[in-house]
Amino acid sequence: MSTLVNPLDERSSDGQSPAPRLDSLEGKTLALLDISKPRGKEFLDRLEQILKERYGVAEVVREVKSTYTKPAPGALIERLGFVDGVIEALAD
């Protein structure tokens, strides 16, 4: 019998479960996070309009990541702590 050295990351990975889903969008405050892909603003402008007109979303908060290649800064995530939901959105 031989002994092997574990080559994997052995830190415990406490699985994080997703936040509860929203029952409806009506009256909710949503954030649209623009990840800085080209023409993201145009896409999100239209999405914001649809969310308000068709789904009764009360308020839409807009934030922009400086680049889509890196995680959102902690301060930005903290700023969005008060909203009911976040849509992180692409474009291209």
Partner: peptide
């Protein structure tokens, strides 16, 4: 503090040793 949503130690000098696994016969 607060820079990362899950603050991590970005420069630990040491980390636990790798575990040993016995290869089943």
């Amino acid at each position: 503090a607060g820079v990362s949503p899950e603050p991590i130690d970005l420069l630990p000098e040491r980390a636990p040793r790798a575990s040993r696994l016995e290869l089943p016969k």
